[in-house]
Structures are given as C-alpha cells and as structure tokens.
C-alpha cells in the first residue's frame, strides 16, 4: 500500500533538511508547507499525525506540530 500523497510529499521535504539541526529543520519544513501547500493538504497531514503518523519522517511530525503557528 503506497503512502498517501501528503505523507510522501512531506517526507520528500523533510529529507532535504536532515542535515540541519532538528529545531531549525522542523521550522523550515513547516514554513515550506505554509508557503506552498493547500490548507486541505496540511489538514490531511495533521489528521495523519493525530492518527499516529505511520510512515512519517520524524522531522515531518515535528514540523506538523508547528503548523498552528506562523513564523518567517
């Protein structure tokens, strides 16, 4: 069973920030999602996290936790 699109796509973003300190990486990922993702995709991601977040990169989970706050 392939990952749902929001999981695959956020993992792709998270992979690019693995080399950064986790806090900075999570913030960068969250900002990217705010800037480029339709709200329904962010909602799907949050719902996925709330359902346990199977398949999600840990940085993506951390970034999802920041989506309620806007920075940058």
């Amino acid at each position: 069973m392939p990952d749902p699109p929001h999981v695959r796509l956020v993992n792709d973003v998270a992979a690019q920030f693995q080399h950064r300190p986790p806090d900075e990486a999570a913030e960068s990922i969250a900002n990217h999602l705010r800037s480029f993702w339709d709200p329904r995709m962010r909602a799907a991601l949050l719902a996925h996290v709330q359902a346990g977040g199977p398949g999600l990169d840990p940085l993506a989970v951390r970034a999802a936790g920041l989506l309620g706050t806007r920075t940058g």
Binding site: P5, S35, F36, W37, D38, P39, R40, M41
Partner: peptide, 18 residues
C-alpha cells in the same frame, strides 16, 4: 491568502473526492 492546489495535488484531491 492561502496557496491553492498544484497540478499533481489536484489529481490527488480528485481521487480523494475534494
């Protein structure tokens, strides 16, 4: 003020019914 769907996102959203 929120970004919309990109083309591949549109396809995914079509399949989820939104």
């Amino acid at each position: 003020e929120e970004p919309g769907l990109r083309i591949p996102n549109m396809f995914d959203a079509a399949l989820d019914g939104s």
